[in-house]
Computed example of a mutant assay.
Amino acid sequence: MTTPEMHWWAEGELAVAGTVDRLADAELADPSALPGWSRAHVIAHLARNADALVNLLTWARTGVETPMYPSREVRDAGIDAAAARPPAELRADYVAACRRLAETMETTPADSWTAPVRNGQGTTVPASAVPWMRAKELWVHGVDLRAGLTFADLPAGFCTELVHDVLGLFATRGQAPEVTVVATDVDRSWGSGAARIEGPVTAVAAWLTRGDASDLRGDVPLPPTWI
Rank of each mutant, 00 (worst) to 15 (best):
M1F: 09
M1V: 14
T2P: 00
T3M: 08
P4Q: 11
P4W: 11
M6H: 11
H7P: 00
H7N: 13
W9S: 10
E11I: 01
E11K: 14
E11Y: 01
G18E: 12
V20C: 04
D21H: 10
L23Q: 07
L23I: 07
L23R: 08
A24V: 03
E27C: 07
L28S: 07
D30T: 15
D30K: 15
P35K: 11
P35C: 05
G36H: 08
W37C: 05
H41M: 02
A44S: 11
L46E: 03
L46C: 06
R48I: 01
A50S: 15
A52I: 08
N55M: 10
N55W: 03
L56I: 12
L57R: 08
L57V: 12
A60R: 04
A60H: 05
A60G: 10
R61D: 13
T62M: 13
G63L: 12
V64Y: 00
E65R: 12
T66R: 12
Y69M: 04
P70W: 02
R72I: 01
V74N: 08
R75N: 03
D76C: 02
A77M: 07
G78Y: 06
I79Q: 10
A82P: 05
A84H: 08
A84P: 05
P86T: 11
P86K: 08
L90K: 10
R91W: 09
A96F: 09
A96L: 15
C98E: 02
C98A: 15
R100W: 01
T104V: 13
M105R: 15
M105Q: 07
T107Q: 10
P109C: 09
W113C: 09
T114N: 07
A115Y: 03
A115H: 06
N119D: 15
N119F: 03
G120Y: 04
P126Q: 06
V130G: 06
W132N: 08
M133V: 09
M133E: 03
R134Q: 01
K136R: 15
K136H: 08
L138H: 02
L138M: 14
W139V: 00
H141Y: 04
H141K: 12
H141V: 05
V143W: 00
D144M: 02
D144T: 02
L145F: 01
A147N: 10
G148W: 04
G148E: 03
L149H: 03
F151G: 02
P155N: 13
P155G: 11
A156P: 00
T160Y: 01
E161G: 11
L162Y: 07
V163G: 10
H164L: 04
V166L: 10
L167W: 04
G168N: 09
G168H: 07
F170N: 08
T172W: 00
R173E: 14
R173D: 13
Q175N: 10
P177C: 08
P177W: 07
E178W: 01
E178M: 04
V182K: 09
V182Q: 11
A183G: 15
T184N: 10
V186E: 11
V186T: 14
W190Q: 12
W190E: 12
W190L: 11
S192L: 04
G193V: 05
A194M: 05
A194E: 15
A195R: 15
A195Q: 14
I197G: 11
E198Y: 01
G199A: 05
G199S: 04
A203C: 04
A205W: 01
S214Q: 09
D215F: 02
L216P: 06
G218P: 12
G218Y: 10
P221C: 05
P221R: 13
P221Y: 04
P224F: 01
W226S: 05
I227A: 12
